[in-house]
Amino acid sequence: MSKHTQVKPQSQGFMHDQRKRRIVADIATYVLLTVLGVIWLLPIVWIFLESFNKNTAPYQDTFFPTEYSLDSYISLFTETKVLNFPRMFMNTFIIAVFVCIISVFFVLSVAYCMSRMRFRGRRSFMNFVLILGMFPGIMSVVAIYFILKAMGLTSDGMTILALILVYSAGTGAGFYVMKGYMDTIPTSLDEAAMLDGCTRWQVFTKIIIPMCRPMIVYQAIVGFLTPWLDFVMAKVIARTQENYTASLGLWLMLDKEYINSWFGRFAAAAVLISIPIAILFIVMQRFYQESMSGAVKG
């Protein structure tokens, strides 16, 4: 009996210490996450409020604006003689939409071939693409420019087409993630469909694509964001403001020639550029959730 009376208080003390440690760890975790959240949100809140700042100068006495107005947004779309941001925004949107569609088709096609077909040189091709992907894309900028120049795609009227080709051409090489997902789909589904008379194209469109919706959502987001946020390739290919993308327009607004009068419009343009990205994530997240719920039910 004495042993039991001694062990019980010790176990209670141990559990009490464990509970205290857990509470302290939870508090420390929440405090750390709160601090990180504030650090992450502070620049976003600042640039959003700065876009409504009545004082458009880049250097001010206060961190947050003291007076607010819509002048930066209005002048961004009305004063287009110096910097035509609406045209740059539309150029970027056209390029991003086409690249998004083309990249999804390319990645799906290459991933399906690598996952479902067996042919000579398949393994060597996959290893070559894997090694090639380890090198930064900026190494090929000069070569890409001279190739486009030789094809006559660097002139003013062909810049948008050239950017679409450049962003889309290499997307098929990013098939590894999609292929890994397709490898999880049983090949017995393909075999059963082909026994019922389906062709490979019907298997691809009727079975593989519907089951790959989560990865299609991922690839669509990546394909849209790549040209939307790129600066280096657009700077090399686009030679005049008529063919500039939104990132080049933002870069020009911070140039020493324009920064004093365009800083407020720079903040407004940064907010406007983030809107399509936010809409894309919201829409694609809904499709992703629907596809995942359908996969679980199936």
Rank of each mutant, 00 (worst) to 15 (best):
A143Y: 04
Q202L: 11
V142G: 03
P186Q: 13
G249V: 08
A143D: 02
G197I: 00
G249E: 08
L153H: 12
A220Q: 07
V222W: 09
C198G: 10
S188N: 05
A143P: 03
C212D: 03
K235Q: 03
F175I: 06
E191Q: 13
G152P: 01
Q219R: 07
F175Q: 07
M151E: 05
K235D: 02
F231C: 08
E242M: 09
G223E: 12
I237Q: 02
M233H: 08
Q219E: 11
M233Y: 09
Y167R: 06
S168N: 02
E257K: 12
W251R: 10
M253I: 11
P214Q: 06
I259C: 09
I164L: 10
Q241M: 11
M151L: 15
E191T: 08
G180E: 13
L252G: 00
D230M: 05
L165I: 15
L229M: 11
T159N: 08
K206W: 02
I237L: 05
E257Q: 14
Q241H: 10
Y181E: 10
T240G: 04
T205V: 03
D196S: 11
M253E: 06
L153A: 12
Y176R: 06
D190F: 01
F231S: 11
K256E: 14
T171K: 15
I164K: 08
Y258T: 06
T205M: 05
V166R: 00
G249R: 06
L225C: 13
L163E: 04
S247T: 13
G197R: 01
V236P: 00
M151F: 14
P210V: 04
W262R: 02
L161E: 08
W201F: 14
L250I: 09
R239G: 00
L165V: 10
Q241N: 11
R200Q: 14
S188G: 04
A238R: 05
L225M: 14
V142M: 09
Y167L: 05
G157N: 03
M151T: 04
C212S: 15
I144Q: 15
A173C: 13
V236M: 07
M211W: 03
W201E: 06
V236E: 04
A246N: 02
T226Q: 12
L250R: 08
M182P: 05
Q241Y: 10
C198L: 12
W201Q: 09
M178G: 13
N243D: 10
I209H: 05
S188Q: 13
M182G: 02
C198H: 13
L248D: 04
I237V: 13
L195A: 11
D196L: 09
L163W: 02
W201C: 12
M211C: 06
K149R: 15
S155I: 06
Y167V: 03
I259D: 08
T199P: 01
K235G: 00
S155M: 03
F263L: 08
T159P: 07
F146R: 01
L161T: 15
L165H: 01
F204D: 02
L229R: 12
